[in-house]
Design a binder for these strands. Sequence first.
DNA 1: ACGGCAACCAAACAAGTGCTTGGTAGGGTA
DNA 2: TACCCTACCAAGCACTTGTTTGGTTGCCGT
Lengths: 207, 207
Amino acid sequence: MPEPGATGATGENSSRRDELLRIAAGLFAEKGFKNTTVRDIADAAGILSGSLYHHFDSKESIVDELLVAFQTELFDRYDEILASDLDARGKIEAAVRLSFEAIHTRGPEVAIFQNDADFLGGFERFGYLAERNQQSRDVWMTLLREGIDSGVLRQDLDIEIIYRFIRDTVWVAVRWYRPGGELDHPEVADQYLHILLEGITEGTTHG
Amino acid sequence: MPEPGATGATGENSSRRDELLRIAAGLFAEKGFKNTTVRDIADAAGILSGSLYHHFDSKESIVDELLVAFQTELFDRYDEILASDLDARGKIEAAVRLSFEAIHTRGPEVAIFQNDADFLGGFERFGYLAERNQQSRDVWMTLLREGIDSGVLRQDLDIEIIYRFIRDTVWVAVRWYRPGGELDHPEVADQYLHILLEGITEGTTHG
DNA sequence: ACGGCAACCAAACAAGTGCTTGGTAGGGTA
DNA sequence: TACCCTACCAAGCACTTGTTTGGTTGCCGT
């Protein structure tokens, strides 16, 4: 007797289902959640819009599933970095590299989160988005404080601004980064870290 | 047949019209263009949705008018900086400060451009958005090349990445900057320039 | 008192939206 | 053969969307 699984509307391990999720993710990322219709998704998949509801409860369920899976994975890895025995600078570098890797491997999900989190956050169902935001903030604030306390970072930095700065500047790269393009994600991360840590001017010494 | 003026649908100098533009800009910025309905705008203005069409041809006209006015003003000032007799570093600093000032004075327009340019660019009517993008690129590429040639910036920089980096990191501040908040825009610009030019690490000397 | 005009209302329309319902083709299993 | 199950179709529903049309209100100069 093949158990369909104690979960969602229909069997959750179907490869067809995964394919539909991938298709929807791409469209959501490209055109935005609200601006992507269930007919768009169905067309891209070669089926009728109603048939999507054999696989998913609702349009919201689709994006919900995408975001939850992505964020669970991402934050597990942030926690690993926090718990590691790297020094302050090493942790900051690791966190930045992880972010660019996420842009590489989960581009659509990152884009959806960047573009539609505000809108989706308005629904009760997506309340966890605000929590994840707070969690991200906690991670980075910890890292930055470690950096300042250990003398790696300048003492005069406004930690609040630096956090916003890093958060926004890292994730916004999802707008132009394309897997398979000229630069792969470790290279981009290196360049980014170089700018962030040392600036772009020639031979400066500050203090 | 009374000529109402050689311009748009109705008189163009009405203060009520300007008020409606301001209201629409705020909503577009907050919820996105596609996700803002004409009924939303009308509700916020205390009128019925149909009444908007006394002032504007279409929903698209509203956002078009907002963006054209904003970009005309902005790029005029970029040109002034390019034509000024500041040195390379001074021009870069001026361009960054101008951007943060724009976020301060034209926040909604900046947000609309950041969030909806991709979507709007798909329509013929908004083809100028791509041109403005190219123009912005030209400005910054010129500034960066000047910076490298004059020895202000490091020679090993990937100018293409630096451009994207500056463009994205400056404008993305519109997501959190609020006029009247703790930091005003000149302060934010200073902090940003400090990070960009010198980095966040302590006492580094490179080369 | 009058006409003109900006600003708005009231009601509707066609197209598009997310979603539902009842049915069916086809492969696997007993 | 009979059964079940996954994946889908065909058709439609209630609602929302941008937009149109004809009419109304109140102010302003003459």
